[in-house]
Design a protein around this nucleic acid. Structure first.
Lengths: 312, 312
DNA sequence: GCCATCCTATAACCAGAAGTTATCGAGATC
DNA sequence: GATCTCGATAACTTCTGGTTATAGGATGGC
């Protein structure tokens, strides 16, 4: 019934003492004020201003409205400013989730970028395997997830449903075969998956295990998985001791290096795609967008560095 | 830019959890909410709600708006209620001025009526001769004045300018000649003004003095005014002691009665009109209107009583 | 796996709020 | 008494904020 614009007008009249001056101070024309007051008067059913001579004076009811204008308008301004701060990246919060090996380099770099560019934006970060982070995204407990998809597992179908989300490719991570330096194949430049039928295998996380099974399946056999651990330091240790071999993404090999383990390209080549996942709506939230952009930048830098490093 | 309606919608969405439920709770249709949110989003330049599956969830910015809705809306409601109270006569203040002899009966009766009917309305009352009360009315220091005009002095012209005001007749007060019981004319039923050329006069307030001068002037002489006082009790005392005679309005004679003074009708008959005066705007203010109505009622009752009393 | 159901988005439309310019009339000023 | 200023009014335009009707996508039961 009564709105902020009305209060603003009444306050201007109280402050300025005339319709014309109030109109000027609000950037309106004089008749606009005249009509607005009349509208308010019919709405409230009371006289709000007293037209005396060529000036006007507020009645009691009019003074009441003018008096209430202050609190209401400043509260509105506060709300507007708060939203503007979020829109202008002077404020805002992003809840980011990423799988563990992404946390090592990609995420920290991106966080640093955002922090440098938009100090007001706070990012809360937690680790989680793709399955968890996507569930959190779906549940609204997370705004942006860094996940991965193994090449070959159909995007959009299968265990994780990427349908309601938008994915942004970050890195293509080649999956390599990790064997002990003492292994007969350690000197090969390339290894055929089909030639590994009799090996003993070490599997990583459940999804990685699934990927291994799929690779073997395409090659026509079921691998003998002797060990399972999500701790890749442990995996490297196991390999170094000759207890088995494993398929390990390049990105992980870059972080947990072991001198007694060599990594070899495989045929058929296998990759995992590291992607940032969010919803179309959240992607438009400035802070989320900024974080996403930072992730893309960091990923590009990492890819360049990787290319150089593999080049020499 | 951002208004109360928008906040109300955002709060409803936050409370109800869906556009449809919010629409229902606000009495709108569902598309109205949908559009309102979109409008707000384009205005703020930020995503406010996250459309997830068949439900919606507020983003950080959306939550900010919903959070601010409470204070703003309740402040608006308070303003509205306060104005409604004034409009509904549950509140309100009237600044009433009346000339002294009106204060004796007319005004107290009217005040009592208003107080009984609208206990929330407070009336501040002060005495003042017509000149003062009209000045106060003009200056906005008074909402309603009870004044009088002597018949013969042109309404609307002369010393007090009644032009910008609206006047409501209250009583017609006959002006009588007050003489001591011992006066030769005391037994007359009617006295001609022309026959009083050689009397010694007592004048009341300046205006009453002016009226006396005018009456004498029409009768063709200048009266010998020996005493002037605004205190009518004193006037009566002076008359009773045979120090002079006076023209006194009936209403005053009713209140300050003296057994040694008799009041006689005069020819030509002279009256003063007692009126309530206010501005067209103020007359529409409920509390002022109620007080005015009460004055009219009290005046009618007084007139009836006077008719009976003069009848027997 | 399909169908019923529930939710949001969109289109097309409509009324009224809210602004404009142009002009009038009344008060105040010199 | 002429002039200047201020408010009211009229006529018109624009755009906000609603409506109904309908399409489209997600969810959940059978």
């Amino acid at each position: 019934m009564i709105d902020a614009a009305g209060l603003r007008v009444m306050r201007a009249i109280a402050d300025e003492g005339s319709f014309t001056a109030a109109a000027l101070s609000l950037g309106y024309s004089q008749p606009a004020i005249s009509q607005m007051v009349r509208r308010l008067e019919t709405r409230t059913g009371t006289t709000l201003v007293e037209r005396v001579g060529r000036s006007v004076r507020l009645t009691e009811a009019g003074a009441v409205l003018a008096r209430h204008a202050g609190p209401v308008l400043s509260a509105l301004d506060a709300a507007e400013e708060e939203v503007a701060a979020i829109a202008g990246l002077r404020s805002g919060r992003v809840r980011l989730m990423a799988f563990p090996s992404a946390s090592a380099t990609l995420v920290p770099k991106a966080l640093a970028k955002v922090k440098a560019k938009h100090p007001g934006v706070s990012i809360t970060f937690s680790e989680g395997e793709p399955r968890e982070s996507l569930a959190a995204l779906r549940a609204g407990e997370c705004d942006l997830a860094v996940a991965f998809v193994y090449e070959g597992t159909d995007l959009g179908r299968g265990e994780e449903d990427l349908e309601p989300f938008v994915t942004t490719p970050l890195l293509d991570d080649e999956v390599l075969l990790a064997v002990p330096r003492s292994h007969p194949l350690a000197t090969s430049t390339q290894v055929d998956m089909a030639a590994l039928q009799d090996e003993t295998w070490i599997a990583g996380c459940p999804r990685c295990r699934g990927h291994l099974l799929q690779l073997a399946s395409t090659a026509g056999y079921v691998p003998d998985v002797a060990y399972e651990t999500e701790d890749y330091v442990a995996v490297m240790g196991l390999i170094a001791e000759g207890l088995g071999i494993a398929v390990i993404p390049d990105l992980i090999l870059k972080t947990v290096h072991h001198e007694d383990v060599v990594a070899l390209p495989m045929t058929p080549a296998s990759r995992r795609h590291i992607v940032a996942v969010t919803t179309p709506d959240l992607q438009r939230v400035p802070a989320v967008k900024a974080t996403l952009d930072a992730l893309v930048e960091s990923a590009e830098a990492a890819a360049k560095w990787a290319a150089q490093s593999s080049g020499r």
